[in-house]
C-alpha cells in the first residue's frame, strides 16, 4: 500500500480586509484569516480518510484545495507522485486532476436546476470531449436510480435521490479519489444510511479512495479508515477509528467525543464543554485550544505543539500522554 495523496504543510490564508476605501477612511489595517495552517496528512490508496471538525476548522477549505477550487497559500499536494503545486507539465496536472472528483453537501444547490439529469451526469466527460453515449443511464443504475430518470430535471427528485445523482456525476470521469464534503449532513437519517451504504459499495466496486469531510462523528466512525481531527485550521490528532474513539489523546478530541449526543445516553448529565471556538482572524497564541483546555499550562500558551507519535495515534499536544 502506498500513499495516494500526500499533503505537506498545507496552508491557506484569506484576505478578509474591508474594501480599500473603507480601510483608508476608517484607518484599519488589512485583516487575514488563516483557515488552514500547516496541515500534513497522507491518504492510502483504497481507504477512507476522514477530516472531522466543527465550523471554522478549515476542513472544507482543505477539500477545496485538494480538488483545485482554491489554491493553497503554502504547502504541497501530491497525487500519485505528481506535485500539483510545482509540476510544470500541464498535461500531467490535468491527468491527475481528472482522477479527483467531489461530492458536495447541499444536493439542492449542487445540481443545475435548468439542466436535465443526463446532461448533468455526463458533463465531466463531455467537457473533455469524451464519449457519453448511454453513460448517464449506466451510472444512474449503478447508483440505484432508473435509466429512465436521465431525461428528468433535478426538482423531480428528493434530497437523497439528488445526492445519488451527484455521486453518479462524480463517477462519470472514472476518478480514483472522491472528496466528499459533508455528503449526508443535509439528508434524513434513513436516507443517510442509503447513501452511506452506496458509497461503501462503490468504493469496493471501483477501488475508490475517499476523503470524507464531516462534522458528524457517527458517520466518521462508520466510514473512516483513518481520522484527522481539525481545530481552528490545525490538525490536532490523527488515528484509526478504534484508537481515536476508545482512547482519544488530545483534550479537544476528548471534549468533542463527550459532547456528541448519543442514542444510548438517556437523560445523560455530563458537564458540557466550556467556551466556544475562537475568532480565526485573531487565534490564540501557542496551542489554539489552550483557552478552553482543562489541562493547559504556560507552555501551551507560548509554543504551538508539533505533531508527535503517541502509541497508535499522532497528536499535537504538549501534555497528552
Amino acid at each position: 500500500m502506498s500513499a495516494y495523496v500526500t499533503v505537506r504543510g498545507l496552508t491557506r490564508v484569506f484576505d478578509v480586509s474591508k474594501p480599500w476605501l473603507n480601510r483608508v477612511l476608517e484607518g484599519r489595517k488589512k485583516a487575514f484569516l488563516t483557515a488552514v495552517s500547516d496541515v500534513d496528512f497522507e491518504i492510502e490508496e483504497r481507504t477512507t480518510y476522514a477530516l472531522v471538525g466543527e465550523s471554522g476548522s478549515g476542513k472544507s477549505t482543505i477539500g477545496k484545495m485538494l480538488v483545485g477550487l482554491l489554491n493553497p497559500s503554502e504547502g504541497n499536494v501530491e497525487v500519485e507522485g505528481v506535485n500539483l503545486m510545482t509540476e510544470a507539465d500541464a498535461d500531467r496536472i490535468a491527468a491527475s486532476r481528472s482522477n479527483i472528483q467531489m461530492i458536495f453537501q447541499d444536493p439542492y444547490a449542487s445540481l443545475n436546476p435548468r439542466w436535465r439529469v443526463r446532461d448533468i451526469i455526463v458533463e465531466p466527460v463531455a467537457a473533455q470531449g469524451g464519449k457519453t453515449e448511454g453513460l448517464a443511464e449506466k451510472l444512474l443504475e449503478q447508483v440505484g436510480l432508473h435509466a429512465s430518470d436521465a431525461g428528468k430535471f433535478p426538482h423531480e427528485f428528493s434530497g437523497g435521490q439528488r445526492q445519488r445523482i451527484c455521486i453518479a456525476r462524480s463517477l462519470a470521469s472514472e476518478p480514483r479519489l472522491i472528496v466528499c464534503d459533508e455528503p449526508t449532513s443535509a439528508l434524513d437519517v434513513s436516507v443517510q444510511a442509503q447513501v452511506l451504504n452506496l458509497m461503501s459499495d462503490l468504493k469496493d466496486e471501483f477501488g475508490l479512495t475517499y476523503l470524507l469531510i464531516t462534522h458528524d462523528l457517527t458517520v466518521v466512525r462508520h466510514m473512516a479508515d483513518r481520522i484527522g481531527v481539525l481545530y481552528l485550521g490545525r490538525l490536532v490528532e490523527e488515528a484509526d477509528p478504534e484508537t481515536l474513539f476508545n482512547t482519544p489523546k488530545h483534550p479537544y478530541t476528548q471534549m468533542l467525543l463527550s459532547a456528541a449526543p448519543r442514542m444510548d445516553a438517556f437523560g445523560r448529565e455530563v458537564p458540557p464543554p466550556q467556551g466556544e471556538i475562537p475568532d480565526p482572524i485573531d487565534p490564540p497564541s501557542g496551542c489554539a485550544f489552550h483557552p478552553r483546555c482543562p489541562i493547559a499550562t504556560d507552555v501551551c500558551r507560548k509554543d504551538r505543539p508539533a505533531m508527535r507519535a503517541l502509541a497508535a495515534s499522532k497528536v499535537a499536544c504538549h501534555l497528552a500522554e
Partner: peptide, 26 residues
Amino acid sequence: NKEYVAAARMIGRSPWAIMIKHILPN
C-alpha cells in the same frame, strides 16, 4: 456561489462556458 458552479469549475470548464451554460439559464 452555488455548488453546481463549483462542480463545473472543478472539472475545468472555462469561465465563459460556466457563465453562458450554467449561470445564464438560472
